[in-house]
């Protein structure tokens, strides 16, 4: 019976070791790699090379903008879908399933799917032609029209990853006892007021999780962009990939990784601080 006390530690030990080796340690290693020169000494050379690179500014700009545009869109849309689901009288299970289908779709696949729409002889141009807006196929995804690529990426990302936010929010909604909203109704709150004053505040923990998760994932956006625009719309993760693969320079790639990590941690801290539960809610 005395061994009892050590059992939980024995049970978590393998996963702890694993995470130390494949999470904590590479985190450190990324930092080290980015500040080590070829000779082994400490240096900021990698960061300087990164900053001096033609693509760096654009990559930073587009990555941040993408997160800034995509994440709020997804949250608002998912929130709307979650509320809509509550208002449906029939077929909830079916809608629930269909709306969450994109959850299983990879970013690369999503990029390719939307490539079929935005490509020169794709469905978008076909539609525009059918509406009489254009005569000949338009080239949307070229280096001359980065904003169009940006739009296509936003479309693909919103299509693919709203489902995650939706599922987190619905799960969160299920945990809120109906009585709160009903009590508010008894006291005369309109549906709109109930949403803003009861549901949304109670949903805050789920919103926080969804925001953090989506922001982190948005900051490492990669395959969607590559599928739709190649390097015509540079992003940070993409640059890290090119520096590692094409230029065989792990140091600069690690510098990019450190930048992504830094922004991610910063974003998480900001969310945690902004959405801190108030004292009276902590109960």
């Amino acid at each position: 019976m005395r061994t009892e006390r050590y059992l939980p530690y024995a049970l978590i030990a393998p996963s702890v070791l694993f995470l130390l080796f494949f999470f904590a340690w590479p985190l450190l290693e990324a930092l080290l790699l980015s500040v080590r020169g070829g000779g082994g000494g400490w240096t900021l050379e990698n960061f300087q090379r990164m900053a001096a690179d033609l693509y760096f500014k654009d990559a930073l700009k587009y990555t941040l903008l993408l997160a800034l545009v995509v994440v709020p869109l997804q949250v608002v849309l998912a929130l709307g879908m979650a509320m809509l689901l509550g208002g449906l009288s029939r077929g909830r299970d079916l809608f629930l399933y269909v709306w969450t289908i994109p959850l299983g779709i990879s970013d690369l696949a999503a990029g390719i799917v939307w490539l079929a729409i935005f490509t020169e002889r794709g469905y978008l141009n076909s539609l525009l032609q059918a509406l009489g807006l254009i005569e000949q196929p338009q080239l949307w995804l070229s280096y001359e029209t980065p904003w169009m690529i940006f739009l296509a990426v936003v479309a693909a990302e919103v299509w693919r990853a709203t489902a995650i936010v939706f599922v987190i929010l619905v799960a969160g909604l299920q945990l809120i006892p109906k009585e709160y909203s009903e009590a508010a109704e008894v006291f005369g709150a309109t549906p709109w007021q109930r949403f803003w004053r009861v549901t949304l505040p109670l949903l805050k923990p789920s919103l926080q999780v969804a925001l953090i998760l989506r922001t982190i994932l948005a900051l490492e956006v990669f395959a969607v962009v590559v599928a739709l625009g190649g390097r015509n719309l540079p992003v940070l993760a993409g640059e890290a990939y090119y520096w590692y693969n094409a230029y065989q320079n792990p140091g600069v790639a690690a510098a990019y990784a450190v930048v992504v990590l830094g922004i991610s941690v910063l974003a998480t801290l900001v969310y945690l601080r902004l959405m801190r539960p108030r004292q009276e809610e902590a109960a």
Binding site: V16, F23, P26, L217, A240, A257, L261, S264, V265
Partner: peptide, 24 residues
């Protein structure tokens, strides 16, 4: 502490860590 470690992994883009891992 263990729960925290698990939740921490969420605050980091894990795939990016493939870069230092590749070297190793």
């Amino acid at each position: 502490a263990y729960r925290l470690l698990i939740l921490m992994t969420r605050a980091f883009p894990l795939a990016i860590l493939a870069i230092p891992l590749a070297v190793r």
